[in-house]
Amino acid sequence: MRTLLLNGTVGAGKTTAMDALGHELRRRGVRHTLVDVDGLRQSWPAPPEDPFHLELTLRNLAAVAANAAAAGTDRLVLAGVLESAAERARYADAVGGDLTVVRIAVPIDTVIARLTRRHADDPDGLAWHLRRAPELAAILDAAGADDHVIEAGRLTPRTLAEHILDLWK
């Protein structure tokens, strides 16, 4: 099973790209499983030493990857945030080794617009995400953990999915 992780800051469009990839993989007849990594980490409270629940995420991801492989999945597509080379290695271990990381990069004004729409009824969440987006973009830039970076600001989800699949052959 081959695994792709769509990386990017909050509001980059990782989940939208994952859904478009799923549609394109279905169209091509490729057996696949889609996983929004945020769903694997949603537990409260987070331990102080692991504020983003990385340990829980990796345990859950290992189980999901094993189940997907047992079900005959050829391609596992993840949407999440990968902040370092060390974290990348741990993700690769969790999914069984084969991991390609594609970062979706979009202009900050696009991120702000998306986050403002997404958190229209959640001012505290919006404030947190608006602070986190540029901070996380800088972390991702410095990490160098991506195999590819796609400037996706003007791409439709379908076009983005096609570009990603061209890279992930």
Rank of each mutant, 00 (worst) to 15 (best):
L76Q: 04
G97D: 09
E49N: 15
D121R: 03
W128P: 07
L115F: 07
A66W: 09
L58M: 13
A68H: 13
H53N: 15
T57Q: 12
H119V: 04
A137Y: 00
A92S: 13
T57G: 11
E135R: 15
I112C: 00
A105S: 03
T57L: 11
V102N: 03
A66K: 07
I104H: 02
L61S: 08
L54F: 13
A85D: 05
E135P: 03
G80Q: 05
A92M: 10
T110W: 02
G72H: 12
V111W: 05
A71C: 07
V106A: 03
R117I: 06
E55M: 01
R90L: 01
P51Q: 14
S84E: 09
G125S: 02
P48V: 13
A89P: 03
N60H: 14
A68V: 09
L136T: 10
V111A: 04
D74R: 13
A79I: 00
A138H: 06
T73M: 00
I139W: 15
L82W: 12
N60V: 11
L130V: 05
H53F: 12
D98G: 04
D124T: 09
R114W: 01
V81A: 07
N60Y: 09
R88K: 15
V64Q: 00
A65L: 03
T110G: 06
V81M: 11
P48S: 15
F52V: 03
V106M: 02
A137C: 02
V101D: 08
L56S: 09
A66G: 03
A70V: 09
G96V: 05
P47G: 13
N60R: 14
A65Y: 05
V102H: 05
G125E: 01
R131Q: 15
E135S: 08
A68G: 08
A120E: 15
D124I: 00
G72V: 10
A63G: 07
L58H: 12
D124P: 06
P107L: 03
E49P: 12
R117Y: 06
E49D: 15
V77W: 03
P47F: 15
A79N: 03
L58I: 11
L76S: 01
A113Y: 00
V64A: 10
A138L: 13
R131S: 13
A86D: 15
P134H: 08
R59C: 00
R103M: 09
A113V: 01
R117N: 14
R59E: 14
E55T: 10
P107S: 03
L61T: 12
R75D: 08
T116G: 07
R75G: 01
R103N: 01
G80P: 00
L76F: 07
L54N: 14
R103I: 04
D93W: 00
V64F: 10
A113P: 02
E135C: 03
L78T: 06
R131D: 14
R132M: 14
R114A: 12
A127P: 08
D121H: 05
V102Y: 10
D122R: 00
R117A: 13
A138F: 05
A68Y: 10
V106D: 04
A85K: 04
H53Y: 10
A105M: 02
R75N: 01
F52E: 14
L78Q: 06
A92C: 12
A138C: 09
V77C: 02
L61M: 11
A62R: 13
P134K: 08
V101R: 12
E135A: 14
V81W: 06
V101I: 02
L61V: 10
R132D: 12
L78S: 09
R103T: 02
